[in-house]
Amino acid sequence: MAAGSESEFKSAYAAAQAAEKEAGRLRNQWTVTETALTKAKEAAEKGNFYSATELAREAERLAKASIFQATSEREAWKALEIR
């Protein structure tokens, strides 16, 4: 697959949206993720699929980080519990 192709962007964008949906399910969506998704879509609309793909991949990384945060914090508070 050629770097910066439309199909590569669509794949990266779909992965980012799926990760962001999971973050939303965990009630831990980050605004920077939404910004990256918006910028990715704008770049794709202008035909700049290389930048759009990179922005979509960044959005996916951010969404996965928010998922990690939500799941780790779900258990971390137990370590701080006074016994």
Rank of each mutant, 00 (worst) to 15 (best):
M1H: 14
M1S: 15
M1Q: 13
A3G: 10
A3C: 09
A3Q: 14
G4C: 03
S5Q: 09
S5P: 07
S5V: 09
S5M: 09
S5E: 10
E6V: 08
E6M: 12
E6G: 06
S7T: 15
S7D: 15
S7F: 11
S7P: 04
E8K: 13
F9L: 09
F9R: 08
K10H: 08
S11W: 08
S11L: 13
S11C: 07
S11R: 14
S11T: 13
A12G: 12
A12L: 10
A12V: 10
A12I: 10
Y13I: 06
A14V: 03
A14I: 02
A14C: 04
A14L: 08
Q17T: 07
Q17E: 14
A18M: 06
A18L: 08
A18G: 05
A19W: 02
E20N: 14
K21L: 12
G24V: 01
G24R: 01
G24M: 00
R25K: 15
L26G: 00
L26Y: 01
L26K: 02
R27T: 11
N28D: 04
N28I: 01
N28P: 03
N28Y: 02
Q29Y: 04
Q29T: 12
W30Y: 11
W30L: 13
W30G: 14
T31L: 11
V32H: 01
V32T: 07
V32P: 00
V32L: 04
T33H: 02
T33N: 03
E34H: 06
E34V: 02
T35L: 02
A36E: 03
A36R: 04
A36G: 01
L37F: 05
T38D: 07
K39C: 02
A40P: 05
A40S: 15
A40H: 06
A40W: 06
A40K: 09
K41A: 14
K41Q: 15
K41H: 12
E42A: 15
A44D: 05
A44K: 06
E45Q: 15
K46L: 11
K46G: 08
K46Y: 06
G47L: 06
G47S: 07
N48L: 07
F49N: 01
Y50T: 14
Y50P: 05
S51G: 07
S51N: 12
A52M: 03
A52I: 04
T53S: 13
T53E: 12
E54S: 12
E54T: 10
A56V: 07
A56L: 10
R57W: 00
R57K: 15
R57P: 00
R57C: 00
R57A: 00
R57S: 00
E58T: 10
E58M: 07
E58K: 13
A59D: 04
A59L: 05
E60L: 05
E60M: 08
R61V: 07
A63W: 01
K64Y: 08
K64A: 12
K64S: 12
S66L: 04
I67P: 01
I67F: 02
I67W: 01
I67T: 03
F68I: 12
F68W: 11
F68K: 15
A70K: 00
T71S: 02
S72P: 01
E73G: 02
R74Y: 08
E75F: 12
A76D: 08
A76Y: 09
A76P: 00
A76C: 04
W77C: 09
W77M: 13
K78L: 15
A79C: 06
A79E: 14
E81I: 11
E81T: 11
I82R: 13
I82E: 13
I82N: 10
I82G: 05
R83V: 14
R83L: 14
